[in-house]
Simulated scan of single mutants.
Amino acid sequence: MARQLTLDLTMPPASSRDDFLITAANRDALAMLDAPEQWPQGRLLLIGGAGSGKSHLAGFWVAEHDAFLCHGWALTPENVDEMIRPGAALVVEDAHEIGGNPAAEQGLFHLWNLVGARQGLLLVTARSAPRDWGLVLPDLRSRLDTAAQAILGPPDDALLPAVLVKLFADRQIQVSPEVVDWLALRMERDLDLARRLVAAIDRESLADRRAITRRLAAELLDKLSPADA
């Protein structure tokens, strides 16, 4: 049978606070995010692996605090002054990408200082601790090393199946609990892998007009691994 040409008709992922799945893996990080008055000097690092929920958390935090959002690689010493008003909030995403980029490092350094001077709030997301970013600017590294950190842990027994159900639902797909439970027991506890796996299952099911079964899930799980990102 000829494979069917498929179009990506995925709905945007549900990303409100109500759609965030709370378990032991992320409960403490969420509690820290919800208490900005306790952040030392108004700054917090949110750290978690790919697909751990950083962008989801940052997204509804931006909405709730009317915050400005930018990516770490876009920072420069020249553009940070206009990003934060006195008392305002700012989110810098994917700060782990700035290591070795002199302009971005200097930009985050200036922004870090401006937030304190203007009594604002700064939330910085990254996949790893600052010591692993390859930072060249010593003053920035010293400030980040002493900053408060909210850590998103790997998915636990409750989170992984719930995320799988949500990822399928985002694609308007209903999957039997048997398939979800089978996957959750056999795959690595890696939310980025879960996202790529659900996308692959969706594509394969549509292209070959196959039902989503344990057999199809197993075939695609064997082809994917966390290192394939």
Rank of each mutant, 00 (worst) to 15 (best):
V163E: 08
L191Y: 07
T125A: 01
S128T: 15
Q119L: 14
A162M: 10
V80W: 01
T146W: 11
D228A: 09
T76D: 05
V124L: 00
L144C: 06
E105Q: 14
G51R: 01
A29Q: 01
M32G: 02
A74Q: 15
A25K: 02
D222W: 10
Q4G: 00
R209A: 13
A31L: 09
P40D: 01
R195E: 12
L160Y: 09
W112K: 00
P177F: 11
H56C: 07
M1Q: 12
A95I: 03
D170A: 03
L7H: 09
C70S: 13
L164M: 04
D94W: 07
I98S: 11
V180N: 04
L69E: 08
T146Y: 14
T125C: 13
W182I: 05
A35Q: 13
L46Y: 02
G59S: 11
L90I: 08
A63M: 02
L137I: 01
A74K: 06
I212H: 07
S205A: 03
V136R: 12
P154C: 12
D66A: 15
R214E: 15
F109K: 00
I173G: 03
G51F: 10
A227Q: 15
T6R: 14
R215D: 15
N26R: 00
H71Q: 09
W182H: 10
R118Y: 09
D170R: 01
D94I: 07
D132T: 10
L197Y: 14
W61K: 00
T10E: 06
D139R: 00
W112P: 08
L33G: 06
G59M: 01
P177S: 15
D192F: 15
L135N: 00
L108I: 01
I47R: 06
A117S: 11
H65E: 09
G87S: 10
I201N: 10
R131H: 04
L123T: 06
D157T: 11
W39I: 05
P130N: 13
L140W: 01
H65N: 11
V165G: 03
V91A: 07
L183A: 10
G59F: 00
A211Q: 12
H56F: 04
A217T: 02
A162D: 00
R143V: 06
T10A: 10
G42S: 13
I173S: 13
P226W: 08
P138R: 12
L30A: 02
D228Y: 04
S128P: 04
F60Y: 04
D145A: 14
G49L: 07
G59Q: 03
L121G: 05
H96D: 15
P12T: 13
G53M: 07
L191F: 08
L167R: 09
